[in-house]
Amino acid sequence: MGFQDQRFDVNLSILFTELPLLERPAAAAAAGFGAVELWWPWVDSPTPPQAELDALGAALDAAGTRLVGLNFYAGQLPGPDRGALSVPGEESDRFRANIDVAADFARSVGCTALNALYGNRVAGVDPQIQDSLALENLVLAARAADRVGATLLIEALNAPESPLYPLVSAPAAIEVVDKVNTATGLGNAKFLMDLYHLSMNGENLPEVIDAYAAKTGHVQIADNPGRGAPGTGALPLEQLLDQLGKAGYDGWVGLEYKAGDRPSADSFGWLPA
């Protein structure tokens, strides 16, 4: 399976954001996509009214687009937050309140990948306390994901843009994946391999693919520098996706890049026909 055979989905939290949320699935479908992914759309609420969840489900259905990836509640994203599950107090409580809401919504729309962003380090809090809380919450999330037939994803971000986020390398994220799987015995925790973030950390991407393709449950891409569409920077993304396919990865590749000054619909010219 090479670049030409990859299954691409479009992230509706970074592309088509010039449109209201409920209009984005149809815009993605008009651009040729049958699959989309989302950060948690209700940044201020881990438990939005059921009517709002139903409206998003109806918009996805009407557009004929499948949701293939969804973040659990992660605080203000985009914004200062990078997750909630390791943050003691109110944010951790909000994450827990969101677990079943997100899982049940995922099941209702056929989404089988749920991304749990770890959360930033908090000044004055022992990192070991945060890590213990994180594992506790990730175990709950993994069990909820398993209940709805989904994979739990753990993502590495990048240190320059997320200096307080502790998982800023592939090995750091993989360590958490392994801890969650050991704790639950379910084996449904996987690595979210975001090639943009890993490149920003200066990691050797071919080595990361060789080492961790088998533990990868989802891939996201953007070019570097700039986080734009493939071809706007220097990353050999076609070559890297070829390598992923040859390593046996046959999951979705999320387009999580910025369209820049042009309309989102004009940012897909690099894609194979």
Results as ranks from 00 to 15, higher is better:
Gln4Arg: 15
Gln4Ser: 14
Asp5Pro: 10
Asp5Glu: 15
Gln6Val: 15
Val10Glu: 00
Ser13Gly: 12
Leu15Glu: 00
Glu18Leu: 08
Pro20Tyr: 08
Glu23Arg: 13
Ala26Asn: 06
Ala27Phe: 09
Ala28Leu: 12
Ala29Met: 05
Gly34Lys: 04
Val36Asp: 01
Glu37Thr: 12
Val43Thr: 14
Ser45Pro: 11
Thr47Val: 15
Pro48Asp: 12
Leu60Glu: 02
Thr65Asp: 05
Arg66Thr: 14
Arg66Val: 09
Gly69Trp: 03
Leu70Gly: 06
Asp81Tyr: 07
Arg82Glu: 00
Ala84Trp: 04
Leu85Val: 04
Ser86Cys: 13
Gly89Ile: 08
Arg94Ile: 01
Arg96Gly: 00
Ala97Leu: 11
Ala97Val: 04
Ala97Tyr: 05
Asn98Pro: 06
Ile99Lys: 03
Asp100Val: 08
Val101Leu: 03
Ala103Trp: 05
Asp104Glu: 15
Phe105Lys: 03
Arg107Trp: 07
Thr112Lys: 13
Asn115Glu: 01
Gly119Pro: 10
Gly119Trp: 05
Arg121Asn: 11
Val125Ile: 15
Pro127Met: 10
Pro127Ala: 08
Leu133Ser: 08
Glu136Arg: 15
Leu138Asp: 06
Leu138Val: 09
Leu138Lys: 04
Val139Glu: 04
Leu140Ile: 06
Val148Ile: 14
Val148Tyr: 06
Pro163Val: 04
Pro166Cys: 01
Pro166Val: 01
Ala172Phe: 02
Ile174Phe: 09
Asp178Thr: 14
Ala183Asp: 09
Gly185Pro: 06
Phe191Gln: 00
Leu192His: 12
His197Val: 03
His197Met: 06
Met200Val: 09
Asn201Met: 07
Ala211Thr: 14
Tyr212Glu: 09
Gly217Tyr: 12
Val219Ser: 01
Val219Ile: 15
Ile221Pro: 02
Ala222Leu: 03
Ala222Lys: 02
Gly226Pro: 13
Gly228Arg: 07
Gly233Pro: 11
Leu235Trp: 13
Ala247Lys: 15
Asp250Met: 03
Gly254Phe: 13
Ser264His: 01
Ala265Cys: 04
Phe268Lys: 00
